[in-house]
Amino acid sequence: MVQQLLHFWQTVLGVIFRHPVIGVSIIPILDDGRIILVKRRDNQQWSFPGGFVDWGETLAETVHRELEEETGLRVKQMGRLVGVYSAPDRDSRLHSICVAIEAQVEGDYRVQEAEILEIQAFLPDDVAQEKLSHDHDRQFQDYRQGKTALA
C-alpha cells in the first residue's frame, strides 16, 4: 500500500513539474495607438502584462484578469493572435508556453501588484528601442510585422 501511494505521488509530481505551464502576454493598445508596458520587479525590464492561466480558466479569461490585475486597464476588444511561443528557454524560471494576444484597452493605468515597478505607455517606435523581458522582443517584432508566429 505504501509503495502504491509513493508511486502515485511520484507520478502526480512528475506530471505537474515535468510539463510546461501555459501563460499569456497581452499587447495592450490604447485608443491613441500607444502600447502599455510594465516594468518587472524581478529583472527591472519592460515587458507586456500577462501571466499564467489559472486552473479552470480560459485564455480569454486570463487576458482579462491579468490585464486588470497588473495595470487596472480593461479589455475593450480582443485583437489578433500574435503567436504561440514555446521555446524551453524563453523563461528562465520554468518551461512555459506563452500565447501572445493583441487587445484594445481602456481605463486608467496604475501599478496594482507588487511584482510591477512601473507602467508606461510607449509609442510603437519607442517600444522597439527597449530591451524587453523574456522573449517579448520577438513577440513585439511579430506583432509589428503582422505575423502570427508559432515559435
Rank of each mutant, 00 (worst) to 15 (best):
E102H: 00
L6F: 06
Q120A: 13
L67C: 06
L73N: 06
N43F: 03
E130W: 01
R41W: 13
E106G: 11
L123R: 02
Q141A: 13
D108G: 09
T62N: 03
R41N: 14
D32N: 13
V53M: 09
E57R: 00
Y85W: 00
D54Q: 15
P28V: 04
Q141M: 11
D135A: 12
F140P: 04
A149F: 02
W9V: 12
E69V: 01
L150G: 09
V127N: 03
E106Y: 03
L37D: 09
H64A: 07
T71C: 05
A121P: 04
I119W: 06
V24I: 11
A87G: 04
R18N: 15
R74P: 15
I116H: 09
T62Y: 02
F140V: 03
D31Q: 11
A149E: 05
Y85V: 00
R65W: 02
G146A: 01
V111C: 09
V75M: 06
I16H: 07
A114M: 09
G72Y: 02
S96P: 03
G14L: 07
R65M: 03
L150N: 12
E102N: 00
G50M: 05
F122R: 02
G50D: 08
V105H: 01
T58H: 01
N43L: 05
I26E: 08
H19M: 08
V21G: 08
A100G: 00
T148A: 08
E69C: 03
